[in-house]
């Protein structure tokens, strides 16, 4: 038989593509985190840079080792390891000791992502899993408030939690937006995070449903507490720009794999995350409850996904 000349590519349609790559989306998300990373270094100095770099390096290394261990073609170059490392670092205090960074970043990759076979398989946000592992194991080291006592900055959510509304009445919104607050080192850079989040929205890398619903859930719950309480509850604005709320709304909650994909479940998921955050802040023991609230909301994702329209031709009545 004569060889086919030229040898054509045979493939299923479509033969055109939007040109967007997952790697590109990940890199743009990392880019969107850069303002906050720079602000973190600005406020906390080299310790912040140390935590971020170490976390990213460990995450990348762990993932590379994992791919080797399971004998599969490495996908470490898609940038998600760096992103997860950065997410985890953003939740840590700048004072975090090296072993905490290393174990958390490794746990994020192994328990959060690779154990489920890599990207897309993870039912929970990878960095959230790593963070939770460490928060439960070494609570005092993970708490920005107790480990950053030598910092001149204030910790709005913690002070509100422990000392009440009076104690935080002198913290201005401008200061919090500029990131002059103690919290997760990058997560607390509210203004810069907001900037990055808006960039992602404008580039259509994230959809507005989840962040808007999350912020809406926080605001709604804060308003309810404020109206029904005895005047000791902080305003919605305070809760939104204090701590890592916006980081949760734009970055942690919109993680593609663990979040729902259709509009209605997305809104329900966002609202659930926001309201749970406020419930934990109000009645729980964690001053900044975003990671735990999001983990709970992500556990509910498969349930929320059941709210789906009927497929074509399977039951819509005649219009």
């Amino acid at each position: 038989m004569k060889p086919i000349e030229p040898l054509l590519t045979v493939a299923s349609p479509p033969h055109v593509h939007c040109g967007r790559t997952f790697k590109g989306m990940t890199l743009e998300t990392i880019l969107a985190l850069m303002p906050a990373a720079i602000m973190a270094v600005w406020h906390f100095g080299l310790p912040a840079a140390r935590v971020m770099l170490l976390s990213c390096a460990v995450a990348v290394l762990t993932e590379a080792v994992c791919w080797k261990a399971i004998k599969r073609r490495s996908a470490v170059d898609d940038g998600t390891a760096v992103l997860i490392g950065l997410f985890y670092a953003f939740l840590l205090p700048a004072s975090a000791p090296w072993w905490l960074v290393v174990s958390g970043a490794a746990a994020s990759i192994i328990l959060g992502k690779m154990i489920f076979g890599g990207n897309g398989g993870n039912p929970l946000g990878a960095a959230l899993v790593g963070w939770t592992t460490c928060r439960i194991s070494w609570g005092t080291f993970m708490d920005p408030y107790t480990t950053m006592l030598d910092s001149p900055l204030r910790a709005p959510l913690h002070e509100l939690h422990y000392f009440g509304l009076q104690a935080v009445s002198d913290i201005s919104a401008t200061n919090m937006l500029l990131g002059e607050q103690i919290g997760g080192l990058g997560a607390a850079q509210s203004g810069a995070i907001l900037l990055g989040g808006l960039y992602l929205l404008s580039r259509r890398i994230i959809r507005p449903e989840i962040p808007v619903a999350f912020i809406g859930g926080i605001a709604l719950a804060a308003l309810v507490f404020q109206l029904t309480g005895d005047g000791t509850n902080a305003s919605a604005t305070f809760h939104l720009i204090g701590g890592g709320t916006l980081f949760g709304a734009f970055f942690l909650a919109t993680d593609p794999a663990p979040s729902p994909v259709l509009p209605v479940p997305m809104i329900a998921y966002g609202l659930m995350g926001g309201i749970l955050t406020m419930l934990i802040r109000q009645y729980g023991m964690y001053p900044d409850a975003v990671p735990f609230a999001l983990l709970l909301a992500q556990l509910a994702t498969p349930l929320l996904e059941r709210i789906a329209p009927k497929p074509f031709g399977t039951g819509r009545v005649k219009a």
Partner: peptide, 15 residues
């Protein structure tokens, strides 16, 4: 692998 972004599901005309 599918990363679960949902671009396909949101745009599917067959729902």
């Amino acid at each position: 692998a599918c990363v679960g972004c949902g671009e396909c599901a949101r745009r599917c005309p067959s729902r």
